[in-house]
């Protein structure tokens, strides 16, 4: 048995060398798709069709940019006006040259808008060399809660549903709202448990699982990656659970 060096391993993993039994094993694992593996396509496409309009995000961003531009113009104009005002001493100009904010709604967006595009976590574009996976950052990104999202009673309903049957809950049309409220998918469960817990609702066996009550602090985490070490799931516990499961399932 020749010792498999790191170098060999890499060649094999990269697919540059698939000779021998090991190569055959990996080839078999990565063999082309079988029809049975493509089931569910229709459902997925339906979900795709039903997904919030794909143009939404870009247009929102566009809007945001537009607002920024407008705000900048407004500020510029105001500044101009203010300047003019202070120099010509027009009434109304005094007192507020420095605070276009006084203009209320109009100029107000100025200080805020710049943050908006940042929040829309359209995953940062990965530079090609930087590998592709960057987009994950987006996954945990915090979407600003949007108006018109489920709240109050409906939120609790969704939560109950989620705790009961996460899959079912995700199928709900307004489920994304719940996720947004929770901050991220990973946090939905806790969010719900807390929500239902404080409402004196019949929680769903919360607390049964101590692990859930002491997850590593999940600060909105470096959304560097949802799978990062900060994530609740990557703790040793999550992992143990998995291996326990799969061991149980597969290992004789």
């Amino acid at each position: 048995m020749t010792r498999l060096t790191r170098h060999d391993a890499r060649r094999i993993l990269d697919g540059r060398d698939r000779s021998g039994r090991l190569g055959a094993l990996l080839d078999a694992a990565a063999a082309s798709a079988r029809p049975a593996e493509l089931g569910g396509e229709d459902d997925v496409l339906t979900a795709f069709r039903a997904a919030p309009r794909h143009a939404v995000r870009p247009s929102r961003r566009f809007l945001a940019r537009f607002v920024v531009v407008k705000a900048v113009i407004a500020v510029a104009l105001l500044g101009g006006v203010a300047l003019a005002a202070s120099s010509s001493l027009t009434p109304g100009g005094e007192g507020s040259p420095g605070q276009p904010v006084a203009e209320g709604g109009r100029a107000d967006p100025a200080p805020n808008t710049p943050t908006e595009p940042v929040e829309t976590p359209t995953a940062p574009t990965p530079s090609p060399s930087d590998t592709s996976i960057k987009p994950f950052k987006g996954e945990d990104g915090e979407d600003p809660p949007e108006p018109g999202r489920p709240s109050g009673k409906r939120l609790k309903q969704l939560c109950r549903l989620f705790l009961d049957d996460p899959r079912g809950a995700r199928a709900e049309k307004d489920y994304p709202g719940l996720e947004e409220r929770a901050g991220s998918l990973e946090r939905v469960r806790r969010f719900c448990e807390r929500l239902l817990g404080e409402g004196g609702d019949d929680g769903d066996g919360k607390g049964e699982d101590p692990q859930d009550t002491n997850p590593s602090p999940k600060p909105s985490a470096s959304h560097e990656d949802t799978s990062g070490p900060g994530g609740p799931h990557n703790g040793p516990q999550g992992h143990k659970g998995l291996s326990a499961r799969s061991d149980g399932t597969y290992v004789g």
Binding site: F48, A51, P52, H54, A55, V56, R57, P58, T120, P121, T122, A123, P124, T125, P126, P128, T131, S132, I133, K134, P135, F136, G138, E139, G141, P166, L185, E186, R189, D209, Q211, D212, D225, T226, S227, H233, G238, G241, L242, R245
Partner: peptide, 29 residues
């Protein structure tokens, strides 16, 4: 969430794997 995704196909695969893994962990829990 695809609309918010940026990246090429490599990135997409990784993204899919990440989501899948999270869903799996959820599931196991």
């Amino acid at each position: 969430d695809l609309r918010g995704f940026k990246g090429d196909f490599d990135g997409f695969r990784g993204w899919a794997a990440t989501i899948g893994r999270h869903r799996a962990l959820d599931h196991v829990r």
